[in-house]
Amino acid sequence: MEVRTIKVFTTVDNINLHTQVVDMSMTYGQQFGPTYLDGADVTKIKPHNSHEGKTFYVLPNDDTLRVEAFEYYHTTDPSFLGRYMSALNHTKKWKYPQVNGLTSIKWADNNCYLATALLTLQQIELKFNPPALQDAYYRARAGEAANFCALILAYCNKTVGELGDVRETMSYLFQHANLDSCKRVLNVVCKTCGQQQTTLKGVEAVMYMGTLSYEQFKKGVQIPCTCGKQATKYLVQQESPFVMMSAPPAQYELKHGTFTCASEYTGNYQCGHYKHITSKETLYCIDGALLTKSSEYKGPITDVFYKENSYTTTIK
């Protein structure tokens, strides 16, 4: 009895394709271990004539594949690729409408935090270190965002349907971005203890939790000093293409032309909904596939993004 075979390709990165001759009487799992086709788990399936010449994702289970996976995804987590594939199996079914010149995501599976993050990423200057993220990001900007969303979920250790947080998501993504040249110098002034300067680099240099107003941050924000008295913390120097200011959701007025974009969060910790506000020729609110415009805006804002380049204080 002759062994019926077909020729397929296996890959971990969709760049390096490895030619395989597979036995049609055995499952993919018996031949390769966990195997995925377009995100779908085909591990328990036997090869079919229609699979001839198709590319299958496999887990990096030998040295060659491990090197290829690390170079593309910059992670050695053995569960990463499987999590990416199972997320992709959902995100490829989502709709990605162009809204006001940006790629958004039609609401499904509690994905409003991903839509808000995706919209924000198209408006701030950011370059990702893992080629996987950078490639998928370019495709997302062009309207094909399924891979990018699935990668975000995998890097953030999230599953489809789980509630997510924009600030946490951005923080994970910033860790995989090139923020080497970003720098922030802060000064804390206390009447009792004097003053202390701190220099922050990388992710810490672009994120701040405690106030939404970048102007206020430049002037000074009140913080408790270690001595128990009130101290003032203010920005001395900022070198970065953008800054992200966050605070627990509270009524906040966004003035046209003073910011790049913002995240609105309605609801409580267990259950809520994100919308995205962007400042173009007027203010726009993007909620999944829905767009509304207004000249002014007041609502429960939790993150505001500002364009920056270089700032030095005039406070002496």
Rank of each mutant, 00 (worst) to 15 (best):
Gln31Ser: 08
Leu186Gln: 13
Arg167Gln: 07
Lys93Met: 05
Met170Ala: 05
Met26Lys: 15
His90Tyr: 12
Gly202Lys: 03
Ser104Gln: 04
Ala146Pro: 01
Arg167Leu: 04
Gln197Cys: 13
Ser246Thr: 07
Trp107His: 15
Ser246Leu: 03
Leu151Val: 03
Arg184Ala: 15
Gly161Trp: 01
Ile152Tyr: 01
Ser213Lys: 02
Gly33Ile: 02
Gln175His: 12
Ser294Phe: 13
Gln31Gly: 01
Cys271Lys: 12
Asp303Phe: 00
Lys46Glu: 11
Thr43Asn: 07
Asp135His: 15
Asp77Ile: 03
Asn187Arg: 13
Gln197Tyr: 08
Trp94Pro: 01
Thr302Ile: 03
Ser86Met: 15
Ala69Phe: 07
Leu88Ser: 01
Asp109Pro: 00
Ile315Asp: 15
Leu59Asn: 05
Pro130Leu: 01
His273Gln: 04
Gly101Cys: 02
Asp303Met: 09
His48Asn: 11
Pro248Leu: 12
Tyr137Ala: 04
Gly220Pro: 10
Arg66Gly: 12
Thr282Pro: 04
Glu144Leu: 07
Met209Arg: 06
Tyr234Asp: 06
Gly257Met: 05
Glu168Tyr: 03
Val206Trp: 02
Leu119Trp: 04
Gly220Cys: 02
Gly267Asp: 13
Asp13Lys: 00
Tyr284Met: 12
Gln30Phe: 04
Gly101His: 04
Gly39Val: 05
Lys95Gly: 08
Pro34Gln: 09
Cys156Val: 08
Ile277Trp: 15
Leu114Val: 09
His256Lys: 12
Ala69Lys: 04
Ile277Arg: 06
His276Val: 01
Asn49His: 15
Gly299Tyr: 04
Gln270Glu: 05
Glu144Arg: 10
Leu126Gly: 03
Met207Leu: 12
Tyr36Trp: 11
Tyr138Arg: 10
Phe80Thr: 00
Glu204Ser: 06
Tyr306Lys: 04
Ala140Gly: 03
His256Ala: 07
Arg66Ser: 07
Phe217Val: 07
Phe9Glu: 14
Thr266Tyr: 15
Cys193Ile: 01
Gln197Lys: 15
Thr312Phe: 14
Val243Tyr: 04
Asn14Ile: 00
Met24Gly: 15
Ala132Arg: 06
Leu291Cys: 14
Ser295Met: 14
Ala140His: 00
Phe242Lys: 08
Gly53Val: 01
Gln222Phe: 14
Leu291Pro: 09
Phe174Met: 12
Leu81Thr: 11
Tyr208Gly: 06
Leu126Gln: 08
Thr116Glu: 10
Gln122Ala: 02
Leu65Arg: 05
Leu163Tyr: 14
Ala87Lys: 05
Asn110Ala: 04
Asn49Trp: 15
Val304Ile: 14
Thr76Ile: 12
Glu308Val: 13
Gly39Gln: 02
Arg184Phe: 09
Asn187Cys: 15
Met170His: 00
Ala150Asn: 01
Tyr208Val: 05
Tyr172Ser: 14
Leu114Ser: 00
Val203Gln: 13
Val12Tyr: 08
Phe9Asp: 05
Ser294Gly: 10
Thr192Cys: 02
Pro130Arg: 02
Arg4Pro: 12
Gly210Asp: 02
Ser294Met: 11
Gln20Asp: 06
Gly267Cys: 13
Tyr57Lys: 00
Leu179Tyr: 04
Tyr311Thr: 07
Tyr214His: 08
Leu118Ala: 04
Met24Thr: 09
Thr211His: 12
Ala154Lys: 01
Cys190Gly: 00
Tyr172Leu: 12
Gln134Leu: 06
Leu114His: 01
Leu121Ser: 04
Gly220Lys: 03
Ser294His: 15
Glu253Asn: 15
Val12Leu: 06
Val22Thr: 08
Pro78Trp: 07
Tyr234Met: 07
Arg139Asn: 08
Gly53Phe: 11
Tyr36Glu: 01
Thr282Asn: 09
Asn187Gly: 10
Leu121Ala: 15
Asn157Asp: 07
Arg167Ile: 01
Met207Trp: 02
Glu71His: 10
Asp77Gln: 01
Gln98Met: 14
Ser263Trp: 00
Lys183Leu: 10
Pro248Thr: 11
Asp77Ser: 07
Leu17Lys: 15
Tyr73Gln: 00
Gly33Thr: 01
Pro130Asp: 00
Thr314Met: 12
Thr266Arg: 10
Glu296Leu: 13
His18Tyr: 09
Lys233Leu: 12
Glu204Ala: 09
Lys255Tyr: 14
Gln238Trp: 00
Glu308Ile: 12
Glu281Ile: 00
Leu254Pro: 05
Ser181Asp: 10
Tyr36Ile: 01
Thr64Trp: 08
Tyr306Trp: 04
Tyr155His: 00
Thr313Trp: 10
Gly29Thr: 00
Ile315Glu: 13
Lys191Gly: 08
His18Leu: 08
Ala205Leu: 03
Glu144Asn: 13
Ala247Met: 09
Leu290Ala: 10
Ser171Thr: 11
Lys191Trp: 09
Leu118Val: 08
Thr314His: 14
His48Asp: 12
Cys227Leu: 02
Leu81His: 13
Leu119Tyr: 04
Thr232Gly: 07
Phe9Val: 12
Thr278Leu: 13
Ala117Ile: 15
Val67Leu: 13
Thr5Pro: 09
Pro248Ser: 11
Glu215Ala: 03
Tyr269Lys: 09
Met245Cys: 11
Tyr72Lys: 12
Val67Tyr: 13
Gly82Lys: 06
Thr103Pro: 01
Tyr297Met: 05
Lys183Thr: 12
Asn129Asp: 07
Arg141Pro: 00
Ala247Thr: 09
Glu2Tyr: 11
Pro47Tyr: 00
Gly267Phe: 11
Val166Ile: 07
Leu65Gln: 12
Thr313Pro: 08
Ser294Trp: 11
Leu126Ala: 02
Ile301Val: 11
Ala262Tyr: 03
Ser279Leu: 02
Asp23Thr: 15
Glu215His: 08
Gln230Leu: 14
Gln237Val: 12
Phe174Glu: 00
Pro300Ser: 14
Arg4Lys: 15
Thr75Trp: 00
Thr198His: 06
Gly257Trp: 01
Lys229Arg: 10
Glu239Ile: 13
Thr76Ala: 09
Tyr96Ser: 03
Ala145Gly: 14
Met170Phe: 09
Leu102Thr: 04
Lys92Ser: 10
Asn111Val: 01
Phe242Leu: 05
Leu81Ser: 01
Val189Tyr: 09
Gln20Ser: 13
Asn111Phe: 00
Thr55Trp: 06
Phe80Arg: 01
Asp77Pro: 02
Phe56Trp: 00
Pro47Val: 03
Tyr73Met: 01
Glu71Trp: 04
Ala145His: 01
Val236Lys: 11
Thr10Asp: 02
Thr43His: 08
Tyr36Arg: 03
Leu200Pro: 04
Asp23Val: 12
Val203Asn: 09
Lys201Pro: 06
Gln216Cys: 11
Arg139Pro: 01
Thr312Pro: 14
Glu253His: 13
Gln195Val: 12
Lys255Glu: 03
Ala145Cys: 12
Val206Leu: 06
Pro131Ile: 00
Thr169Leu: 15
Ala108Asp: 05
Val236Gly: 06
Glu68Ala: 07
Thr120Trp: 10
Glu239Arg: 12
Asp135Arg: 11
Asn157Met: 05
Lys127Arg: 09
Lys158Ala: 01
Tyr306His: 04
Leu235His: 02
Thr313Lys: 14
Tyr96Asp: 00
Leu133Asn: 01
Glu71Asn: 15
His74Cys: 08
Glu52Asn: 11
Ile301His: 06
Gly194Cys: 04
Lys92Phe: 02
Met24Asn: 11
Asn157Gln: 15
Thr226Asn: 11
Thr55His: 06
Phe80Cys: 00
Asn268Arg: 11
Ile15Asn: 15
Leu200Thr: 10
Phe242Gln: 05
Val221Asn: 06
Met85Cys: 07
Asp165Cys: 13
Thr258Tyr: 07
Thr292Ile: 10
Lys127His: 10
Leu151Met: 03
Ala142Cys: 15
Gly82Leu: 11
Lys92Gly: 06
Ile301Cys: 05
Glu281Leu: 01
Val236Ser: 07
Pro97Tyr: 11
Pro224Cys: 12
Arg141Ser: 10
Asn61Trp: 10
Cys227Glu: 01
Phe56Ala: 00
His273Trp: 07
Thr266Leu: 07
Asn309Glu: 14
Thr43Leu: 03
Phe9Tyr: 14
Asp62Lys: 10
Glu2Asn: 14
Cys227Val: 04
Ile286Gln: 14
Cys149Met: 10
Tyr208Phe: 14
